[in-house]
Structure formats: structure tokens, C-alpha cells
Design a protein around this nucleic acid. Sequence first.
DNA 1: TTTCATT
Length: 249
Amino acid sequence: MVFLSGAKWSPFPRQVSYARPSSDTIKDANLYISGLPRTMTQKDVEDMFARYGRIINSRVLVDQATGLSRGVAFIRFDKRAEAEDAIKDLNGQKPPGASEPITVKFAANPNQAKNSQLLSQLYHSQSRRFGGPVHHQAQRFRFSPMSVEHMGGLSGVSVPGNSTSGWCIFIYNLGQDADEGILWQMFGPFGAVTNVKVIRDFNTNKCKGFGFVTMTNYEEAAMAIASLNGYRLGDKILQVSFKTSKSHK
DNA sequence: TTTCATT
């Protein structure tokens, strides 16, 4: 005779909760990896990091239009100590067959990143006066949209800076204190700007002297470059051009 | 004095 009264309501082993315990040991175990060879897939990256611990999830950022790797990835480890080991071992190292070292560090909080970008735009849109040296010169630009419409023959040509999500512009010779706001101010008048970035030193937060602006329309980007290249910002002469591929050698 | 990347 089978006596079932003790079985209660668990006829099958219940799947243990998916939620992971909240604990310091699993906090902030998320890594940001940049400088990866574009040929490396998500699996390749996982393979490289697997020996340091249990990988909870991973992602390789790809250009939405081309599907090509951006050389940037995320790896979330089970434990922070595992992530720390991976940083110590792999940061600044070259993957097999790679010519450039990779950067491995803890990932920034995505909410923080989004907020700072929003704040940057908010600051830009709310600011009426700028103490910077650019403002009083803004009217020196000559707008001649007719001339650039002639340059339509872009198809089939490999044009630096292009991607279907916009035209990436490289700005060199920014001052150490440059910020995103100055880029919005300089490029915004020429047309649709979708993104700006000031490259800063990780530790000092000082600008490394260059930045990027993404503009939607070629004509506006070309006009901005033509107008802003050679522009004097503070005591420096800007160099402005379409971004070129870093691997031109 | 010369090319990012933050799911």
C-alpha cells in the first residue's frame, strides 16, 4: 500500500529560483572589454574568459547596419573575484593572433551612462549663454547648401566615416577641459547631430584632445567639416575630418 | 599632436 499523504504538493523537484542571491561576492562582476579584434565572435570572447570563472552572460557589440563587431564586449562573471582575476590577467594583453592589446575593466553602470548623456543634452538645450570662446564666432560660417548637393555620387565608393546610422566625424585638438556640450554647440547649427563623444583619460577625466560627432546627413556633416576644420577653439586650431579606420596601417 | 565605442 502506498501512503501518499506525506507527498504534499511537490510531485516533481521544483526548479530552484532563477534569482541569484544578492551578495557582495556577485556584485559588480560585469566586465567591459574593448580593443578586441573585429574577427572575434561572442564565443571567441567567452572562450578567452572562461578559464577565470563562470560566465553568466556575454555580449559583443556589433554595428547595427553592417553586423561587424565593434571590438567591444561585455562579460558578466558569477563572482567579482573572477572578474578581478580576468582583469589582472587579460587587461593590456593581446589575444592570440591579435596585433593590439585589449582593455579589460569593470563595466560602467548603463543607467549612469544614459543619464549622463541625457544630462549633457539637457544642459545643451537649456543653456543660452556659453562662457566658451566659440560663441561669438558662430556667424563666420558660410552656408551654401547648393554646392554640396552636387557631390551626390557617393555610391560604391568607400567613404570614411560612413555608416547607415550616420557620418562619424573626428575632431582633434580639443582642450583638456572640453566637454560634450562644446561639440553640440559647434556641430548642432549644421544639422542633425545624433551623438557626440569626448575622449577622456580614464583616471584623470581630462580630455585626451579629441572627440567624435555623428551626424545624420552627409551634406550637413560635410558642411560642418568644411566650416570647422581649422577653427580656432581657445588657443588651439581644430582638425576636423571624417573619421578614418584605426587600422589603416 | 592624430581615431571612441558602456549591453
